[in-house]
Amino acid sequence: MRTKAYLKVIAVTVLITLSVLAMFSSVAFAQLKLDTDQNSVKIDVFYHGSTISLSGATDPGADLVIKITSPEGESKLREKGKVGFFWMNTGELKFKHVPNLYFLYSTKDTKDILSPEEMNKHVIGYSSLKEQVEISPIKKDSERTKWFTEFVKFKEESGLYGVSPKSISVTKKGSEERYNINIDWPFQAPPGHYTATVYEIKNKKIVDKAETSISVSQAGLVKTIANMASKNGALYGIVSIVIALLVGFGISLIFKKS
């Protein structure tokens, strides 16, 4: 009888603990959301990039990091070196396990709000990207650091990489806290699928995350021309030449008359 009573007490305690935990977790984790005003970016004739708004509810007092990336892949770039007096292409470097696009936004400097382990685990920051990149044929660590720095410079110059700390604004609406950021989507980002992830941070640890996808695709005339160029090169070439000839002769005739 005694044992039965003990078991009953234990069962009730476990149930209460579980339900309290469940309640707590719903308070701490379920609030984080990531909404965007556009999941699909269409590239048309006059496209020059876009503005994407990312927003959502967050837990009061938490810090946030938003990361936008393309899937990891391989980038081949030519290395410039000095031969005699001249700077020229001296070889090719392969950068493996790096995204083509990488943007990071945060409420504070990421190093101040996250532990290095957490940053590496979720690939947050250039230093954690450096941890996972494989640069061939580079072997020495000093060389690796040098070429990774050059790689980031090259990507930032191309408008495809960027880190903007203190760029997310958080506002209070009643009892709820909401974050918001307007991102200048670069026109250099090629068509493809991109992922935006928001991380909620407390005590240097990521406590929750939410994701949304952004797809970039060509539309209308841009799509027609791109398809023709890649699928019907001969006809595309002939049309390009004929139009050029017509414009060239046409303009000379206009000038002749005037």
């Binding site: 770039l77 030519r78 290395e79 410039k80 070196g81 007096f85 001249f86 700077w87 020229m88 292409n89 470097l93 070429w147 050059e150 790689f151 410079k153 090259f154 110059e157």
Partner: peptide, 11 residues
């Protein structure tokens, strides 16, 4: 060819 480039990588 003789001035040091700002970025040592190119496409």
């Amino acid at each position: 060819l003789t001035l040091s480039p700002a970025i040592h990588l190119t496409v």
